[in-house]
């Protein structure tokens, strides 16, 4: 199992955010193991025990990495739009654009094209793009209002 996984076996604390493989279980002998390559045998394909087993701490860690990145970016883009004095619809469009852009960039940089998102997240699209949009909008709105008020008066 350790040989099959390229990521997640070594995580140094000083490194920039890096995702941990979803299935990495140190020191735990599991009865359910899966090969990374798509299995060829039909017997394996329909076998429920050949499915991936998720390791919750790693999943949580990955989700928190994404949340942290999006927290910081939504706050700073809120500041930017306040300083740019964007008003009404422009501001919300700016939020939408920057949010999608950040999500895309997060996905490309952290997951990349070689790996599947499902190696790191339970539902990659939801975890990277959709979840907690309300929270980021609220943070963006707060910084936008604050800096708009600071700049314009």
């Amino acid at each position: 199992m350790a040989g099959a996984k390229k990521h997640g076996t070594t995580q140094k604390p000083s490194q920039p955010p890096q995702l941990k493989a979803k299935t990495h279980v140190p020191g735990k002998s599991s009865t359910k193991k899966s090969s990374k390559k798509p299995s060829t045998t039909a017997a394996i394909k329909n076998d429920p025990f050949a499915r991936q087993l998720n390791y919750k701490p790693n999943i949580d860690y990955n989700r928190n990495v994404v949340i942290r990145i999006k927290d910081i970016t939504s706050l700073s883009f809120g500041t930017a739009s306040g300083i740019l004095k964007l008003t009404s619809l422009n501001g919300f469009l700016f939020f939408l654009a920057t949010n999608i852009f950040t999500s895309l960039l997060t996905y490309v940089v952290l997951v990349g094209f070689k790996n599947k998102g499902t190696d790191y997240f339970v539902s990659p699209f939801n975890d990277v793009f959709v979840n907690d949009v309300g929270r980021y909008l609220a943070s963006y709105l707060m910084m936008w209002c604050l800096f708009y008020a600071l700049v314009s008066t």
């Binding site: 927290d71 939504s74 980021y136 609220a138 943070s139 709105l141 707060m142």
Partner: peptide, 21 residues
């Protein structure tokens, strides 16, 4: 209303400051 905007928007700040989601 600034209080209400803060009430909703501060969760990100808390997450960054407290480092505990």
């Amino acid at each position: 209303s600034w209080y209400f905007v803060n009430l909703m928007g501060l969760s990100s700040i808390y997450a960054l400051v407290l480092n505990d989601n």
